[in-house]
Design a protein around this nucleic acid. Structure first.
Lengths: 182, 182
DNA sequence: ACAAATTTGGACATATCTGTCCAACAACGA
DNA sequence: TCGTTGTTGGACAGATATGTCCAAATTTGT
């Protein structure tokens, strides 16, 4: 593979992630334009729109899981680990995870990546079960609520109703409260 | 207006709400099929797809606001009012509110209904400010988080990961906790 | 029962998106 | 430098969605 091609693949995936997060039903032309390459170049690397979506989702999922693991949620006091996870998510994970939320409904039914959230939820759920967080609700619910609040916060920032810092502070206070035992 | 036509309009709006909530980019043909009428009948009442979306959104918004007001969030103890609002939302409001979430990104930029959430958030925010809920985060954030958790719960039920009842219980416990003062 | 309103099926022009082919061109690597 | 690899623009067929027109059939209200 020529260096040229490899560079373009990365550029295309970056552009696709950016464009699709904002407009999930964007076409190949829009993605190619955002990447600064010809539409045919995209087809040269991904034989169909579906294949491109799959690649984007796969990469975003891998990056998200890597960033979660880098926060080491299985180490130390669960409450501190939770704070670490929140900070890491808000700092870097969310950027990759957003396209997954946007792509999930549009993914073809037979894709193995339909279950994006499963591995991500699994990581969060493991932390919840390790700590003694709210036990009068299912851990799976707490994990889903965690993701949901991250998504809500990202939307608030995107729409300008909250600043990046204010949203981070709000999350750092609200999530532990949501997880509180009583 | 003939009784016939009025009936069809209601049928079309119902079908559109149902279909669009599941598939926001569904076409006129799919909506007409779901309503059991010909595609031209839809065009007879709504001159364009955009006009139909507007009508669906407007009706859903009105129904949502009416249901919120029926729960009388401004009456009695704020904590009990919050419980009432949660129950009302989960019981009936969510069904109408879901299409708004789905339609918001697809609405044309110049639509007055782009700001769906504003009046809904306003009602919730008023309750938050009336009660002595968590004051170390902005009331607007709490209101957004309220909506976000409702959305998350609805998704959990839709995907079969949680039963309707379990989700209702989880909400009734988690939201007051999220709103807790300390 | 009858006139008016409404729905229906068919057909049509228009636009957009996908996926493909091809020939010319540019960039890489040895 | 030179052959190979990759990119580009143009063009094309097929599919799909929108919006429109029309004449025939049906339903409604009186």
């Amino acid at each position: 593979m020529r260096a040229d091609a490899e560079r373009n693949i990365a550029t295309i995936l970056d552009a696709a992630e950016r464009v699709l997060a904002a407009t999930p039903d964007a076409g190949m032309a829009a993605i190619a334009r955002a990447a600064g390459v010809a539409r045919q170049t995209v087809y040269a690397h991904y034989s169909s729109r579906e294949a491109l979506l799959e690649a984007v989702a796969e990469r975003a999922l891998a990056q998200t899981l890597a960033a979660i693991d880098a926060a080491e949620p299985e180490r130390g006091d669960p409450r501190e680990a939770l704070d670490r996870l929140i900070a890491a998510w808000w700092g870097s994970i969310g950027r990759h995870a957003r396209v997954l939320e946007a792509l999930a409904p549009a993914m073809p039914a037979h894709s193995e990546l339909r279950a994006f959230h499963a591995p991500i939820l699994g990581r969060v759920e493991a932390l919840i079960e390790r700590g003694d967080f709210a036990r009068d609700v299912p851990p799976a619910w707490l994990a889903a609520a965690f993701l949901g609040l991250m998504h809500t916060a990202a939307e608030e920032v995107a729409s300008g109703r909250l600043s990046q810092e204010a949203a981070g502070r709000a999350l750092a206070r609200s999530i532990p409260r949501l997880f509180a035992d009583r």
